[in-house]
Nucleic acid binder design. Structure first.
Lengths: 147, 147
DNA sequence: TTTGTAATTGAGATACAATCTCAATTATAC
DNA sequence: GTATAATTGAGATTGTATCTCAATTACAAA
């Protein structure tokens, strides 16, 4: 099995793009962050290592990582796009707490199956799918009761 | 059964808010549009009837309509929030064609059930959920083959 | 009907994420 | 090494969404 760096290198080569130090830095940064992150969090982390690194480069690189299936957009949170790396992970759905922002991940095989069924029904060729449930996590529910 | 205007009036009254001509205009506009729309489409339509109507008022009113369950956000399309009215409609999922923008609506009772199950599993109190599938509709698939 | 008051409005200013521009730089193939 | 097309950073720009504030208005109570 290839490493994520190999994956990225191959993707770039196939598309006549270059593997630059900036792209390498961003790639490593993405996989060193625990799961969900937005562009600013990533920039803040990487900017410490390379003061020159521009936000624009991150904005330009992340779509490439999406394109070669190393990361994906998840839910939008407070107007910002959130990403997570998916290389070596299975697809899963998200439950987002509206109060504390906690994200619960859940995989439900039966839902995946039903989605495929729906696509077949409409002769729809799915590229990507996202199930997001917004509400309140157990802790926040308890807090709200307590008030 | 109440009309959507009654629903809105009740909601406003309960919250000490006013039923203004602008809000009435926006409400009617929303329900006269066929399903999915974004704020600009709505403004363009309403601006013709009332040249004074400000975008800000629409931006301020739509969250009220969401709050009282007359409309809901659907998928984000090209960076814009899309809305649809749901008064008198059942919840449904969306299949969005990445090429032509066509939106297919689908309701699948079994998925709804499974979602409830997941929420129970995590003691999560859902407020809202959205399932979006992005890909290519049948027509666009055929077009792409043809090329 | 009149009045008091708090909510609402429009217009423009503002905030902010995301994108674009362009000269300077650099990775890659030969 | 050299040629060349891709890439970069910094700042400008775009475009959605939000905020500000003085003027206006809906609505409840008199």
């Amino acid at each position: 099995m290839n490493s994520y760096e190999d994956e990225f290198r191959n993707y770039l080569k196939e598309n006549g793009l270059k593997f630059t130090p900036e792209r390498q830095l961003i790639l490593k940064g993405v996989f060193s962050l625990h799961k969900h992150f937005d562009i600013d969090q990533l920039w803040e982390k990487l900017h410490r290592k390379d003061r020159r690194l521009s936000r624009a480069t991150i904005y330009r690189t992340l779509p490439l990582l999406v394109e070669c299936n190393l990361i994906q957009e998840t839910l939008r949170c407070q107007g910002r796009v959130q990403y997570e790396h998916i290389f070596g992970h299975e697809h899963h759905d998200h439950l987002v707490c509206l109060k504390c922002g906690k994200i619960i991940e859940s995989r439900e095989e039966r839902i995946e199956k039903l989605q495929e069924e729906i696509c077949k029904r409409y002769h729809f060729k799915a590229v990507e799918h996202r199930l997001g449930i917004r509400g309140y996590c157990q802790k926040c529910q308890n807090k709200m009761k307590g008030t």
